[in-house]
Write a protein that binds this DNA or RNA. Sequence first.
DNA 1: CCACGAAAGGTCAAATAAGGTCAAGAAACC
DNA 2: GGTTTCTTGACCTTATTTGACCTTTCGTGG
Lengths: 155, 155
Amino acid sequence: MGTLSDSIERYLKGRLSRAVEGVIEIRRSEVAEQFDCVPSQINYVLETRFTPQRGYYVESRRGGGGYIRIMRIYLRQKQSMWESVCEEIGESIDAARADSLVARLEEMGVLNARRALLVRGALRHETAGISPPWDGVIRAKLLKSMLSLVFHEGG
Amino acid sequence: MGTLSDSIERYLKGRLSRAVEGVIEIRRSEVAEQFDCVPSQINYVLETRFTPQRGYYVESRRGGGGYIRIMRIYLRQKQSMWESVCEEIGESIDAARADSLVARLEEMGVLNARRALLVRGALRHETAGISPPWDGVIRAKLLKSMLSLVFHEGG
DNA sequence: CCACGAAAGGTCAAATAAGGTCAAGAAACC
DNA sequence: GGTTTCTTGACCTTATTTGACCTTTCGTGG
């Protein structure tokens, strides 16, 4: 199912979710061997899927006894989360950053799969054919409006 | 029998109706091959027949392991209301018409008081300082995006 | 000390594998 | 006959995989 990168991503997230403290330490070469791929493939997965934008922090050390440490970053409570989300969106946001934000909110359980899809769909549909820099401005407005419904619903 | 596009549409809807969760993932090139046409034909079918207005959401990924994912949103009796609301909003809508639409949806129970307030707030806030005719266009996009979340929620 | 080699991980670019866009021409429909 | 919808193809953008080459760290023998 999916690409090699997807499998590695799933594997790492699986280990992370089972890890206390939300931190794991891996050997790049070991993971590469497990998935029968070149070591730099692991870097690729880390760079594309474990970014700060998506709520991960990665650090590493080279040399003998080297390692890669992956950390899950937990966010604050709902009230301040809405504020920080607004701040992150700002007056304009590009498609990639918007996507990462939606992915992160989905992983955090703020958006279920269905809503995440609707949000992504609306962002794409409503900004189609609009050229920079206005697409970013409109995307920001749409995102803030839709998420305001989600964050402020219920109690 | 209709056109090639009709056949492709029927084929995709057939697969969708048999899919659990109402989601399918296709390979554009594979479907194109099945119907012996160019790949971009698939895009045409998706753009013209699988729109949010009609209750479908499409997303895709390029590159290795790329795919096109199509989701059916079930609306039951609300489907026609959603369509007519979309039509009423159109590509642009002025503040007064937007307000009365929101009021009407609130009276009908589609929007509760809290949400109606959020929608009005977002419309006002996000179009403030934007001069005609763009305020109307943005208002329309905001309204459709927010209402899509409301209309398409639940099962 | 210090140099050096082994043991990590890092970088970058090429090759490959998708899907997207757009406009021109053809067909179907008033 | 004109308008709308469909079909095709040339060209574009993005994502993944692989490999050659680079840098950092640690331990050890001189």
